[in-house]
Computed example of a mutant assay.
Amino acid sequence: MQPVEIIPGDSPVVLGVPHAGTFVPEKIWANLNETGHKLADTDWHVDRLYTGLLPGATMVKANFHRYVIDANRDPEDASLYPGQNTTTLCPTTDFDGCPIYLDGKEPGSDEIQARRLAWHAPYHAALEAELERVRARHGIAILYDCHSIRSKVPYLFEGTLPDFNTGTNGGTTCAAEIEQAVVDLTSNAAGYTSILNGRFKGGWTTRHYGRPDTGIHAIQMELAQSTHLATEDTPFAYDEAKAERLRGHLRTILFALADLAPALKPHKKTSEETTHG
């Protein structure tokens, strides 16, 4: 199994999909317990949800499961949310705080490093290469990082999660126009709830690549799985009717971002501005 699947396109929008993969190597699978084998923390069907919404959008998808290694965590395993419950680079618990490994079978530091090199690094090498290719073509690249999570996870957050959870790390990872466009569209989506920089402010991917001054903008969308799944437990089935309704809003968001791109290209200084700037 290749670590990453790339569907290249000619749009300024790049879709990152780090958590929809379900592949677990046999050696790792043998060390997981029954809880781990549920793969409950998968971003179920997110790749399917976004496929075909924006013609020409590039998609970079991790094929491996986040229990192998989490492609949206700092490779040095620094916490994204200090002081709050979260999972690590190589998770040993699920989103409910329950162990996912058999006793004594958790990965050690050498195993974690090996997994990082075999899975995490290739995913980000591919994502970075696609962002650079798209930026070279358009003068700008907009990374839209695609995620989903159960709408109720008491270990991670209180109550019920809003349907649309937009993350820009406090407005630092993308132009204000991008953030505002997404906020406007999600807040006006009839029948859905939304929030900006709530419990999910953007993971490592968004924070690492989002450098608006260089022409690379990043924004994370965490969807509550109640918006597109028939059930948020086994078998995590895709609900066609729910998904099609949601896809209409996601399509509008992606088209809006693509339309914004030309106006957001970094300004190149003229020789006179360079001399007197």
Rank of each mutant, 00 (worst) to 15 (best):
P12H: 02
G16K: 07
G21H: 14
E26Q: 07
K27H: 12
N33W: 05
G36E: 07
H37E: 13
T42G: 09
D43W: 14
D43S: 15
L49Q: 02
T58F: 07
K61G: 13
N63A: 09
R73S: 07
D74E: 06
P75Q: 11
L80E: 04
G83W: 07
Q84D: 11
N85Q: 11
F95T: 00
C98K: 03
L102S: 00
L102T: 01
G104L: 05
G108M: 09
S109A: 15
R116I: 02
H120Q: 07
A121Y: 04
P122G: 08
P122N: 13
Y123S: 08
H124S: 03
A125F: 10
A125Q: 13
E132K: 15
V134R: 02
R135A: 04
R137T: 10
L143E: 06
Y144G: 09
Y144I: 01
G159N: 13
T160R: 06
P162W: 06
D163N: 14
F164I: 09
N165Q: 03
N169L: 15
N169C: 13
G170E: 12
E179P: 01
Q180F: 04
L185K: 05
T193M: 05
S194Q: 13
G202N: 07
G203P: 12
T205F: 08
H208M: 05
G210A: 09
D213G: 04
T214S: 11
G215L: 07
M221Q: 13
E222I: 05
S226R: 14
A230F: 01
T231S: 15
E232G: 14
P235K: 08
Y238W: 11
A241F: 03
K242E: 06
K242G: 06
L246V: 12
A256E: 08
A258W: 12
L260G: 02
P266Q: 01
S271Y: 00
H276F: 15
